[in-house]
Design a protein around this nucleic acid. Structure first.
Lengths: 134, 134
DNA sequence: CGGGATCCCAAAAGATACTG
DNA sequence: CAGTATCTTTTGGGATCCCG
């Protein structure tokens, strides 16, 4: 308290929100990549093999599938089980930690399914209003 | 049904998950940028002026603040109110749509605050296991 | 079958300078 | 005060080819 930094009358002064401290940022860090949630969904009903998963998720490449799975595995959300036969068999499944994410994720899907129309309409409106301003 | 596409015995064949159709993808499209949720949080307790917001959010640049606010405004989550005095005063606030997002977002913060430690530990573990494999 | 390695591109974000 | 404009850097993702 030695510093003459006594706050002004408006009260709020110094930063109280930061990316590093925000838990939502931590969440994004884990599952904001394009394919991560999609992979979690594919695993929702039980273990799935790599190839099967690839066929179920439209448009994913082997590279992105592998890369995203590695991240999820590294974060402890997904378990990888290799059966070293020839050809090899690799099964992926949710860990308990991974499964604990399904609930919150479904909340978001609900929000989006309910409100996405409003968002699109707001965008339209915003864009058309700008056009008229030329 | 003219196509001889009768499914094999393993049942699951064609893609049933896609980025375009997934509601979670739509959600990410709206609030996955680095600063968007932080700005929503800054508005949680009521209207805030541009400068005040900037001081509250650590590390944000004016450019990113403006850019993110424009996106949120375009999507109908944030309302912008300009008082054309000199110098100008601009207040930002949540719209009802924006406020409807706060709940789901808090779910995620809760998940992250509870489980982030496990994730970090899993990462550590994964990385150290890899190091030993040289 | 289930990857790894490499190259390339587009989008997001940051730095800096200028303005009504 | 609250922006805009421009430039550069960083990151994420896709394409392609190779491997045990």
């Amino acid at each position: 308290m030695s510093n003459a930094e006594t706050a002004g009358p408006a009260a709020k002064r110094k930063p109280d929100i930061s990316p590093e401290r925000c838990d939502y940022t931590k969440f994004l860090d884990i599952v904001s990549s394009k394919w991560s949630a999609l992979i979690l969904y594919a695993l929702e009903d039980g273990p799935v093999r790599f190839g099967e998963m690839g066929r179920r998720i439209e448009g994913i490449s082997k590279k992105m599938q592998t890369q995203t799975l590695r991240q999820l595995e590294r974060d402890g959300l997904v378990h990888r089980e290799l059966t070293p036969s020839i050809p090899p068999v690799v099964d992926y499944s949710l860990t308990p930690l991974g499964r604990s994410l399904i609930g919150p994720l479904q909340e978001l899907k609900r929000w989006a399914s309910i409100h996405h129309g409003e968002v699109m309409q707001a965008r339209d409106n915003y864009d058309r209003t700008l056009e008229r301003a030329d």
